[in-house]
Design a protein around this nucleic acid. Sequence first.
DNA 1: CCAGACGTTGTT
DNA 2: GTCTGG
DNA 3: CCAGACGTTGTT
DNA 4: GTCTGG
Length: 248
Amino acid sequence: MCGRFALSKLPAELLEEFEIHTGQSASQLPLLPADWNITPTRTIYLVRNDSKNQRELATASWGMIAGWSKDRESALKSQSQAINARSESIAEKPTFRSAFRNRRCLIPADGYYEWATELGPYSPKQPFYISSEKWESGRTSLAFAGIWDRWISPEGEIVDSAAIITRPAVGFLATVHSRMPTFLPKERWDAWLDRTNQDCDEATAMMKLDMPDHGLRAIPVASLVNSIRNNGPELITPIELGEPQTLF
DNA sequence: CCAGACGTTGTT
DNA sequence: GTCTGG
DNA sequence: CCAGACGTTGTT
DNA sequence: GTCTGG
């Protein structure tokens, strides 16, 4: 799945990489600090289409706040339980289905973290950092498939929130963890973001890739990332992994 | 009809 | 808001 | 996702 | 053990 990730890019870089050529000015966008330990409920960048169906860069809080939340407390409570949406059931779940039809987005990331569980050959809680194998050559971001929603607080505050779509892990990623984020390659972005396309079946088809783990690599990293108090580029420094640890 | 849930992951 | 369970 | 809390009363 | 906060 995906419960922690990294993003160090500036708005101007994201506008270029995500091909947002609709006149949005980077200087007018919120500047989020580089963050190698982004946690649920924090503010993240989204790529989505605006009401005129023009691609834009926006920000939102990570974790879906259901539109019917009555107060801030219940909104926050539900949000931290909806940081991911299963691709297998997203079209039916009450919390997600309308966003899946009408408010799809991309969530940019340098990379994300996965903690190896007992399913894999590693000790529990061994973190891995997964990113594009082209990061060093071109600072290539990952594009998570996501959905977003808008909640109006009782005080009238507009709060946008978003969830990352997950799927069963495949290939080498399955050796680390049983779930993985759903990625979308560049050639699918247009159709995915198109707000005139409100067909669940088509959206579901867009998430199906021949090689969902294509172009990715996973590296073991120190457990520094485990604590949300730690941050910085050192969190993604590769470490040597000894023999897989077993319980005696 | 009203009340209560509405989510994921991992672990058991 | 909308569906499910009682 | 992991880490850290997990409680009340009264007083400031 | 389970929930909350970040």
